[in-house]
Simulated scan of single mutants.
Amino acid sequence: MRFLLVILGGAVGAPLRYVIDRTVQARHDTAFPWGTFAANVTGSMILGVLTGAALSGAVSQNIQLLLGTGLCGALTTYSTFSYETLNLSEAGARFLAAANVVASVIAGLGAVFIGLTLTQAAFG
């Protein structure tokens, strides 16, 4: 049963990542990978909220598997982030590559922290 929850969450997260990426990137005429950035920050926020809810006992382990491991695991993407950063660097856009690394780490950690803090405040 747990395995199926992860599969179900992943089956929603992967196409959601694609839709977020294409929608956001279509609105920006730049080499910066805004679509992947948005998907990763969104997934980080969801995971922060979910973690806060789990720590307060508001969600079950099954929900953690469905949304945390499945959905967020497929929604966020370290491999695409790495690939796009490498492409920027190889294309000579080293500033954008460095900005992608710094902004992604800061925004991702910030989103997890904000989600966790808000949820703990709501359920605490």
Rank of each mutant, 00 (worst) to 15 (best):
L5G: 01
L5I: 07
A11N: 02
A11H: 01
V12T: 06
A14C: 14
I20K: 06
R22D: 11
R27N: 05
T30W: 14
A31I: 02
A31S: 13
F32N: 02
P33C: 02
P33S: 03
W34N: 03
T36G: 02
T36Q: 04
A38R: 08
A39Y: 04
A39H: 08
N40V: 01
G43R: 06
L47V: 12
G48V: 07
G48E: 01
L50T: 05
L55G: 15
S56V: 00
S56K: 13
S56M: 05
S56C: 07
S60T: 15
N62V: 01
L71F: 14
A74N: 04
A74S: 13
T76W: 10
S79D: 09
S79N: 05
S79M: 11
F81G: 10
S82F: 08
T85R: 05
N87G: 06
L88D: 10
S89A: 15
E90C: 13
E90K: 15
F95E: 01
A97M: 11
A97T: 14
A99M: 13
A99D: 04
V101F: 04
V102T: 12
A103N: 12
V105D: 09
V105G: 11
G108N: 04
A111H: 14
I114P: 00
G115A: 15
L116F: 10
T117F: 08
